[in-house]
Structure formats: C-alpha cells, structure tokens
Design a protein around this nucleic acid. Structure first.
Lengths: 202, 202
DNA sequence: GGCCTGGCATGACATCGGTCATGGGTGTCG
DNA sequence: CGACACCCATGACCGATGTCATGCCAGGCC
C-alpha cells in the first residue's frame, strides 16, 4: 500500500527535486504539486493525498494558514511542514494549525521519507532541537495590534506611513512600537522587527 | 560519457533532493556534496566534477566568492549558480566571478539537467528575465564604504552602534547613510537597506 | 458591580536621525 | 600639476522617533 504525497512549495526546482527524492522510495508516490498556498485545498481535494509536504513561505496563503484550511476541509489528510527557517513560532503555530510534523530543510535527505511514513502512521515528527527552542522562546508576547504595527514597520517606512496604512494616529503607532521595543528588549524598531521575525512572531 | 556534478548548498534536504533529481538522468552523476562555501575548493579538488551547482547563500564563504576561488584553483571546472533569490547584483557578480550559468530555484525542475548539459558544453545559461532586470538595475551605485555602513545598519542598531563597529565617528556614519539614502531613493535607512538587498548590492 | 487587559488617543519632552556646508586627507587619471 | 572621486570628520539645523503620563472605551472575569 503506497503512501500518496502532495508537495506545496513555491520553488519549482525544489518541488521537482523533492518529488524525485521521494519517488525513489517504493512505498511513496507523489500525486500532486502546487506552488501557491491558495491552491492547496483544491488540489488536495482532487488528488486525495495521504500526506502533504508544506512549506511555510509561500505566495498567496502561507503554509500555516493553508494547513489550518486543509485540516478543516480534509481532516484525514496529514500535514508535514518542511521549511527553511526553524523559527520557534512557526513550529508552535504549525502544530496548533493541525500539522502532524515539522522538519527543517537542513535535515539529512534520507530522513525525509521516514518522516513521511511516521506522519502517515499518525505519529508526530518534530525536530528535537527546535522543540526545546520553542519551549524556551515561548509564545509571542505581542498583542495582535502590536504585531500588526510591527509587521507594517518592517518595510522601513516612517511612523506617518504606518499610521496611514493602518488608519491609526501617529501617537498610537508610536505607543505600540514603544511597547514592542520594550517587550523584545530591542533598542530600535528595526532591531525589534528582527527579533520578532527570528522567533516567528510575525 | 557522463557529466560529473557536485552540489554546494547549505540545506541538506535540498542537496539530497537535487541529487536524486539529477541522478534520474543517464548522462549525469553526482560525485560530491558540500554544505559550506569553504569546503567547495577542497571537495572539488578531490572529486574533480565537471560542473558545480552552487547556491549563493551559504555559511562560511558565500557562493560568489566560492565561485571565484574555484575558478582560480580549477579553471576547467564550470560553475552553475542555482539560487533562491534572483537579485540582479547576484547575477552580475556571479558572472564576473566566472560562473557559466545562473538559474533561480523557481525554474521548472526538468530544465535543470539541460542547464547542466549546456554549461558543460561551454555555453552560458542565464534566465532571460533576470538578465534584463540586471541590465536595468545596473551596477551598485554605492561606494565600498557606503556598502559597509549599510550592511552594518541592517542589524537595526543605532548610529552609535555602527560607528563603534566600524571605528568611525558618528557624523561620518550619518553622512554615509545619508548618501546611501539619497542614491537608493529611499526615505529611511531601513528602506535603503531593503532596496539594496533586493538588488543584491550587499 | 468592580477589576484588569488591551486598543486608541493626546500632549510634552529628550534624544536620535537625516541633511547640509565645509574642510582636510588620500589616491587616480588626463 | 590640476581635476576628480572617495573617505573621514566637525558642527549646526530641524524633523522624526522613543518615552512617559494620562485619559477614554470595550470586553472578559471573578
């Protein structure tokens, strides 16, 4: 009984390469590929994969939101998140969204097929080093609004730009940014944005 | 006559997957893999590949510098740069460093083997869309020192931090940043850093 | 109902940041 | 040599930014 796998990754070359890698295993077969988060649910509904390999960084819908959507539409379809960045927040949010496993792209290639099999069996697969990081880093200390403001601040615009973008007063934006800087332990908004990004809080 | 290929990419999973993809072709064989730019020359000297697939973003030595080193040590060994980001500056600097081809990771997987073959035949392989971008963007307008300062500014530190890091006076740092902001058409240093990064000037 | 948290706002203050003028030192090129 | 480009620095100006105090309102919780 072969396991049907679908790939969701925005880089076509990586997608094709992963397909080649998995097709080497007799018990695995790749039944579909998508390069956009919005296409995941449709393609999975049509192709009926047992496991979806999901990248986090994707155009359209990000992999975590796509995971949540997919779990709602097809609860029997398991998700293994395979991503470039081992951000603690990604792991946490991914699992909360219903992912069964979480693997970073610098794990050895030979372990991927095993991870797919484990996930298919209903087991959880999580990089141990990342799991401890996630425990240490904890959840995001930022409120929803603070996250919005910081996300908007990433672009490098001025306070006025951010205020216009979010329909807030400049003073409010400054207050939120001040709170964010305090919570992250940073000394400028840019530093705060970097810290938050490294932790997967954005 | 099979073409011997070596892979240089920091993500083990991608490396393994690309290997699987290329091994599907009868005329290609993967003779080595490295995950660090500093290992490229040593590994190539030992394995004698015909073509090296080189990622730009790597720990140790970046792919462009590694390309230059490799061309110096083994002039017969051709380099095909395969990277995530199609930054115009990467293309330009890669070709100047002696790369024979430049492919981004969202090109279709089936085209990779052909690109390797072309490069092996001594032809140049360049993504056409990227080539025009590179022409439009032109070379980096930043002086060496301005580039240093902007690179240091990326971290989000204050002017004082940057000045300390580069052993400059604060006023000088501000002047350089002001020049950078002017040249990039940005309105803050953060914006300037983003623009420069998107163009591969850092 | 009280109590707390979070979003939003205002105003005031000190500091930081970006701009400009100016000058001295280097090296290169015609 | 003179012209030019780049690096480094100083000082002054003003707008932007980060901090703080204070207030109002909505929603959740005991």
């Amino acid at each position: 009984m072969t396991i049907k796998v679908m790939l969701a990754d925005d880089q076509a070359l990586v997608r094709g390469a992963l397909a080649a890698l998995l097709e080497l295993e007799q018990d695995l077969t790749v039944v579909g590929e998508v390069g956009d988060g919005t296409e995941v649910v449709d393609a999975a509904t049509e192709k009926r994969p047992d496991v979806v390999l999901m990248d986090v960084e994707m155009p359209g819908l990000d992999g975590i939101s796509a995971t949540a959507e997919l779990r709602k539409a097809l609860p029997d379809c398991r998700v293994l998140i395979v991503t470039t960045f081992g951000r603690p927040g990604y792991l946490r949010r991914g699992l909360q969204a219903g992912a069964a496993g979480f693997v970073v792209k610098d794990t050895p290639a030979r372990e991927l097929a095993d991870a797919v099999r484990r996930v298919h069996q209903g087991l959880r697969v999580v990089d141990p080093a990342l799991a401890t990081d996630s425990l240490i880093a904890g959840e995001s200390p930022l409120t929803a609004r603070e996250t919005d403001v910081l996300r908007a601040a990433r672009g490098g615009g001025t306070v006025a730009d951010i205020a216009r973008e979010l329909f807030l007063s400049e003073g409010t934006v400054r207050n939120h940014l001040s709170a964010v800087i305090g919570k992250t332990g940073a000394r400028t908004r840019a530093e705060a944005a970097q810290i938050a990004e490294a932790n997967g809080w954005l």
